[in-house]
Amino acid sequence: MSGGTVDRARAMAAPLGRPALAAAAFVVLAAAFFAVIGRNPLSMIGVVLEAAAGDSYAIGESLVRATPILLCALATALPARVGLISVGAEGQFYAGAIAGTGTVLSMLPTPGWTMLPLMLVTGALGGMALSLLAGLLRTGLQVNETISTLLTNYVAALLVTWLVYGPWKSPASQGWPATVEFPAAAKLPALFDSRVHAGLLIGIALAVVLHLVLTRSRWGLVLDVLRSNPRAGLVAGLDFRRNALIVMALGGALAGLAGIAETASIQGRLQSDIAGGAGFSGFLVAWLARNHCLRIIPLSLLVGALLASGDGLQMFAQVPSSVTLVIQGLLFVAVLLVNGWLDRKRPG
């Protein structure tokens, strides 16, 4: 293949932008997948669209799924700004859920207006604590943060399971492992008469604020330097440890917030497996967005919609809902392909 043709194709593709190209590649891949499993690609894509955004209920469910993914993606992107690779959003989500639930349970007989803010703050602190543990291990003992966050994910998830089977199990739930139902005072306000709660707005606002802070402020520059070359940062007198701990703490707080908001407003009680992979989807979204906080917003909504369409697929098209996991995988493959193609080091 001649280099000229590729260059010309690339030049023509540039104005379309990465998102459009990636979307096109994704549709092609998804269609191919449906063809392979013996379904009509067009009607299946129709079903996916219908189930993700066909009516106000579908849109609502998509936004519900997107909310924790958005916060968890921010929780991943923030440590990445100093070059730390945290895969701990899932565990921090659970840690936040535990801490916030603890607050709610301790205040239970008489819930007042203070319950909601206290629950959110302690939830954030819970996520922060777990994330700081990994941060301290990294800055103090050089323990790889990717491994430690991966492992603490299991600890936090199992801790939830133990709590809901044991000390926090509701006597009224007749054997079902869950805490008591949260009171209305612990729920975030709902939006547009749906299950979507204010956590979505909080997440979007935080993404915008973080974007401005990271790209406009002096602190953002400090983080950039530490990511680009920690040694040069040290020579310039910048404090890697302090900044690493700050971003780990803030990231953990965001995932913790996602955890307690999901527990209180969507599940209504603490039970096992409530994260449903939101932490990991968040990691992938952050990675797709290249840790760019604004790009995280649409990508979270897209991934949330895809995941939400799983139920629809199961109901209307009689395919296993796990098909959506394949579709989610294909989305990442599509973005990878397009990025790889556009970024390929030009030979010269």
């Binding site: 330097v225 070359n229 040069a232 020579v235 007198g237």
Partner: peptide, 20 residues
């Protein structure tokens, strides 16, 4: 290795030691 942040702009690199 020791004195520049390679993927950041020259302007920032020239302010590296006085970011604060």
């Amino acid at each position: 290795r020791n004195a520049v942040a390679p993927d950041l702009p020259l302007a920032l690199n020239l302010h590296l030691d006085r970011l604060h």
